[in-house]
């Protein structure tokens, strides 16, 4: 190849050609993502959709999903916020291990989470045995659905919240400290308000993750309509029996996912949040 003559270098057409090249390759991926989803929506929007949406099994799955993912998001908020704050604010021995444990569920297949939970909380498990002695049994209960959701969705919140806390300028905290604020006052009146965008994003993300949880739930909580059959489980079961219900549920989940993304974008744009 000859060295190009710089004086004759013309950025215009070459740039355009490259732009088309990049966009052309990239559009294949867009097509791969868009075509199946569009087909799903198209198929789901059948005449019977309204009948399926009114089916009692669909409604039970929907309300159970709403309930469990909201409860688990509450648990994540209560336990995850102090954890995220600790990780952002202080360093301590073994911190890297704590971080590893928190990040693992993000990359771990949820099925493995389900098996791990079943082994730990099961009748012969390290946590299950003492609970069993108290007459509490977690597997196959609605509480198990919540635990599975906290397991897989909690890390999303902790990560996001931690970054939110960590990116606050230390000077702001120090200024409050100089003014005489104690650690709790700093947390409540300085850190949480300044990190609120990150906290909200984290909560919404983990709620959505909990809502879509499947693998850990089906192993740890089982599948029982009205008790542990959340929407993703109903979709899985429906695919084998009633495709219409599975499609109706898929459409609802898709809609909720789209809403979540809109909400996240809205928060990201700087629209005031509570």
């Amino acid at each position: 190849m000859n060295t190009p003559d710089r004086s004759q270098w013309n950025p215009g057409p070459a740039h355009t050609r490259w732009a088309w090249g990049f966009a052309g390759v990239g559009s294949l991926l867009v097509a791969l993502l868009a075509i199946p989803l569009a087909t799903l929506i198209w198929t789901a929007l059948s005449d019977e959709l309204l009948v399926y949406l009114r089916a009692p099994s669909l409604q039970r799955a929907l309300s159970l999903s709403m309930l469990t993912s909201s409860v688990s998001t509450g648990v994540i908020l209560l336990l995850g916020t102090p954890l995220a704050y600790t990780l952002a604010r202080w360093s301590f021995r073994g911190k890297a291990w704590v971080e590893l444990i928190i990040d693992l569920p993000l990359v771990l297949p949820p099925l493995i989470a389900g098996i791990a939970l079943l082994l730990a909380f099961g009748r012969n498990g390290i946590l299950g045995q003492p609970l069993d002695a108290l007459g509490l049994r977690l597997p196959f209960t609605t509480a198990a659905v919540v635990v599975a959701q906290v397991f897989v969705a909690g890390p999303l919140y902790v990560r996001t919240a931690r970054i939110g806390f960590a990116t606050i300028e230390p000077e702001l905290r120090e200024a409050a400290s100089v003014e005489g604020a104690n650690e709790m006052q700093i947390f409540r009146h300085v850190m949480v308000p300044l990190a609120r965008r990150a906290l909200w994003s984290g909560l919404i993300l983990s709620w959505a993750r909990a809502f879509g949880e499947f693998g850990a739930t089906i192993i740890f909580a089982g599948n029982m309509e009205g008790r542990t059959q959340t929407m993703p489980l109903a979709i899985f079961v429906g695919f084998e029996s009633n495709l219409g219900i599975a499609l109706g549920l898929s459409l609802i989940l898709l809609l909720i996912a789209a809403l979540v993304l809109l909400l996240l974008r809205w928060i990201g744009r700087g629209v005031p949040v509570a």
């Binding site: 099961g122 009748r123 012969n124 597997p139 089982g222 599948n223 029982m224 079961v237």
Partner: peptide, 21 residues
């Protein structure tokens, strides 16, 4: 008494082997 309607035979066998039901 049904704790769960499992989506396959194998999960039933595994969960019984673990003593979970």
């Amino acid at each position: 008494n049904v704790a769960s309607q499992e989506v396959g035979v194998k999960p039933i066998v595994s969960k019984i082997s673990l003593g979970e039901a």
